[in-house]
Nucleic acid binder design. Sequence first.
DNA 1: TATGAATGAGGTTTCATTCAT
DNA 2: AATGAATGAAACCTCATTCAT
Lengths: 233, 233, 233, 233
Amino acid sequence: MNIKTTVEDPALVGRRRAQLTQAAIACFSERGYHPTTIRDVAERADVSIGLIYQYVGDKEDLLFMALQEVLDIYMRQIPMALEGVADPLGRFCTAVRAYCRVNGSSVDATVLAYRETKSLRAERRAAIMQKELDTNELIAACVRDCIAAQLFEEIDVDIFVYQIVMFCHAWALKAWHFAKAMDVDTYLERGLKLMLRGVLTGAGEKRMRRLEAERVVPVAPAAPARPRRVSRR
Amino acid sequence: MNIKTTVEDPALVGRRRAQLTQAAIACFSERGYHPTTIRDVAERADVSIGLIYQYVGDKEDLLFMALQEVLDIYMRQIPMALEGVADPLGRFCTAVRAYCRVNGSSVDATVLAYRETKSLRAERRAAIMQKELDTNELIAACVRDCIAAQLFEEIDVDIFVYQIVMFCHAWALKAWHFAKAMDVDTYLERGLKLMLRGVLTGAGEKRMRRLEAERVVPVAPAAPARPRRVSRR
Amino acid sequence: MNIKTTVEDPALVGRRRAQLTQAAIACFSERGYHPTTIRDVAERADVSIGLIYQYVGDKEDLLFMALQEVLDIYMRQIPMALEGVADPLGRFCTAVRAYCRVNGSSVDATVLAYRETKSLRAERRAAIMQKELDTNELIAACVRDCIAAQLFEEIDVDIFVYQIVMFCHAWALKAWHFAKAMDVDTYLERGLKLMLRGVLTGAGEKRMRRLEAERVVPVAPAAPARPRRVSRR
Amino acid sequence: MNIKTTVEDPALVGRRRAQLTQAAIACFSERGYHPTTIRDVAERADVSIGLIYQYVGDKEDLLFMALQEVLDIYMRQIPMALEGVADPLGRFCTAVRAYCRVNGSSVDATVLAYRETKSLRAERRAAIMQKELDTNELIAACVRDCIAAQLFEEIDVDIFVYQIVMFCHAWALKAWHFAKAMDVDTYLERGLKLMLRGVLTGAGEKRMRRLEAERVVPVAPAAPARPRRVSRR
DNA sequence: TATGAATGAGGTTTCATTCAT
DNA sequence: AATGAATGAAACCTCATTCAT
């Protein structure tokens, strides 16, 4: 499952792999895994074809690296966004917002994960799926905290979390539909409102209103803070 | 955009294309569009390679036909399920159930649509997307009826409909996760409950309870009505 | 171990394979197995590259077919030459002459067998070796008959046969040395004389002289009769 | 025809080349010249890839060095074995035994020479062939001495010498056949007996019997004297 | 209308060789 | 003198498409 390399310096391997991964994400997102040629990736990464095979065993390794990176972004962004947020409901909303914005800033990458995970051999596909579950767990924890704090009703956590995740992914998957009518943040707030309505307790609603009020100011500075990145070449 | 054929008898063209479409859906679902060869499809359809090119211009035509058929199933099944159902809330639930069950019985086909729509050239991709919107409209109409009947709050219809659609697709897209914990119907009822909670008015809730009570018996005969089909070889 | 084909008509398969085999023998003899490209073989056989892969699984199959054909020539020529020859000593000499002349007329093919048998995977290499042993057996039988008829001493048949075989192969393997000093027939008669001297009994020598006398005339017509074949393009 | 180097110290060049030659013989014997990569040789010699190109112009140089070394072994071993042997017939037998044992102890190397001499460009191939002729001359001299001493009949020296050489090579080339039935020494003595029978005069036979008698004891110490070397990694 | 043999462009991968360090 | 990362030409093989039968 580990990727073959003929290069000995681990730091160099890390650097080159990151470079190749970015190129792979860009190419595969653009045209899909199969239509993309190794030459495409080499050109995008501005290296020779031969170099690729010194850091990677075969083309599928590039896909695996690309998908891992795409999923890893969530695992990096969500905890980062949660730092310093204490209130359970606040944490929940923050996590969902972070999740959705990662999607918003890397639509292609999310679509890539949906399109090409199946192009991996079983063992690796399982690793990617596990990563998705790990990410979900970040949100699930927030949900459970809200339930424990009696801000949420006693709902089915697993289904609710996937409902949220699918809602976030939908922004990317149906960008062709939504992006012409609104921006991510509008989409996010409308959806959040809809989904929360079904789960908030009375106490939850009250807490929500207070959080909304507090958010009035920080909303502006918060926006630029969000880290537009990911599927950039 | 129309598909090329060298055969003159339209009935024959229809029959052969249906045959090829079924084979294409099966093959593409199994291995993906690009890895599938024309030979694979020919063997699955039990015809010669040459024959395919008498009913189809190129490989992409097969994909287009396959995806059209997958989306058409919804357009056939939902209206069929709605026949004879009058109550707005009943119609809504019926539509959602039909939608979700189509997914349940053709997981591979749904996944195929997600994976390979992008493999079509722009013009055809747009046609597929339009079909998806047309299908959504079937559900949106029910939602609007419920709002008009004051059974639903004044919610954002577009987002709510997509939330439902994504919920249904999630069963197929995340089958690797859900299918080991429950069956479609359990998934459906739990999700429906969760989503309805956020939108039902007081009147809506009352109506819902009545419908639930009535459904106790019909649940059994309802089952055989659902049309297991699609991604069969 | 059997060779893959996608073509259904067995007669066609036979014809095409024969054609490819001839081309392969010519190419591999000329430049060796590895330096020869599939394109070389395709051009020599005057077919497309793709066609080759409809009759053959991979490049090694071509080598296998080529080596089999080279060895098969002995199995065809020796029995043909022996037809109608009754005297044991006469049969022995005839067999050796046939063997040596096959070598003489397909020097490249013999060298090919020495160079490239090891390029086959174990299983197939074993099949080629077995074919060599089968051919040796044709000569060994003659030797045993001579011993039984008390024309040969009670010698070590296995070593003697291989001595003869190596002597014949030597004409091909050391053509760069011998061919500038004599022709096959001279080489053959001198070597035969030398080798026979060590094994003939008194009776054997007498019989030999008689056969020599009889051969005086037929020697000329015999020569044109030899069947130049094999490594022709 | 001389091999390129960028290194100035001739002693170092000699040492490194010997090291590379041993590695090359080992690798090429094992897998053949073309399938062996420079990396294989570098690893076997425990040096870097770059170093090889400081002592060698290209891959073919390695093959040339390897083949030269293989042939040189004969030129070293035969004279060494002949030292102190005076009797012409004794010298002949000693030379043949030395030749055959070199084969026996480096089967792979002999096979290598047969397989890959043709992979050299013409000029170098000629040099290798000349080396073979030089070696043959060592045996030819013994044969001529035997004839002069009237121990051998007036035979065709050239053909007889090649018959012996081929017999010795056969042990290596047909090791798959002989090695399972006997050891080199058995093979050697049986073959020698067969070949001598055809060439010994009456005086030669008598002399042979005397030598045989004398050899009874020395046979044991003779064995450890033979120089197992060559195709070792 | 149906077949399937034939084509050849193009993709992935290997590896001899170079050259900056 | 020694290293090994980088290069890119070239090889094998696949497969969409054509076309004679």
